[in-house]
Amino acid sequence: MTTEPGAMGLDVSLQKPSFIAVAMAGKTGPVTIVLLVFVAIWYAGAIWMNSTWEIDRFAKKNIDWTMVQLVSKTMQQERPILPAPHQVLVEMNDTIFLKKITSKRSLVYHSSVTLSSTLLGFVVGGLLGILLAVGIVYNTTLERSLMPWIISSQTIPILAIAPMIIVVLGAIGLKGLVPKAIISMYLCFFPVTIGMVKGLRSPDVLQIDLMRTYNASRWQTFWMLRWPSSMPFLFTSLKVAIAISLVGAIVGELPTGAQAGLGARLLAGSYYGQTIQIWSALVTAAILAASLVILIGWIERYVLKKMGTRP
């Protein structure tokens, strides 16, 4: 068969695929559409859940209502059962951008309180996790006696006993940042330890033997082979760790009598039935968590690039 590049075929191969087609083939398009559907469901849910109360009110006032009236009313309630997304956004705009940062009602203030204990717990827990992993990799006794307990330590619902830790530490004068950071630390160290044990053991026998033929000391083997090859594992577990560190800090704020922090904001909202406040605190917490994870992802890319790892 004589292969002649037909005019049609040439056209198709040279034609750039449209922007939408590119987006739909990748992840961006589908994710956007799923998000849009999610928002639509949220709106529908808000109308449906809030409508009962509005219909009752219309009935009491003996007003003939139309669908349009009902829908617009369900979006403007003071304390809706489920606030509409735009209500949450307005509240977030009010409390993040329009309030002064030092104000007690500013979400920036509350987020910074939560963030500081998250980061403190994350740093200490991460270091503890790395130390434990090094100990476990280099010492069989430590591995065999400690490892099962490290694993079972995480089946204890630490988040559930957080209030006790807060109250008891408060009784001996430790208040504010430190008790919350301790809870975050306890949650953080576990994924780091597990990931680093795997990472420090990831160089294969051949490479370790090579180090031996170079007459490398244990320290050199650690610093030049094991440590660099554990980096991808470290960052993967750090992403998990910082996310649960934030959860730990938020739950740690629940029993402190609603003074400051996103958790306190949640609790205050649930006491006074301020659903919009709860939702805006929740969304802020979600944004915070996502940006922390993304930040770690950036650092990971930078470090791996510096080390010369090909992606």
Binding site: K239, V240, I250, G269, S270, T275, A281, L282, A285, A290
Partner: peptide, 11 residues
């Protein structure tokens, strides 16, 4: 899975 879902509890 990275979000603090426990916060949904009061709702």
């Amino acid at each position: 899975s990275a979000l603090p879902i426990v916060g949904i509890a009061p709702i």
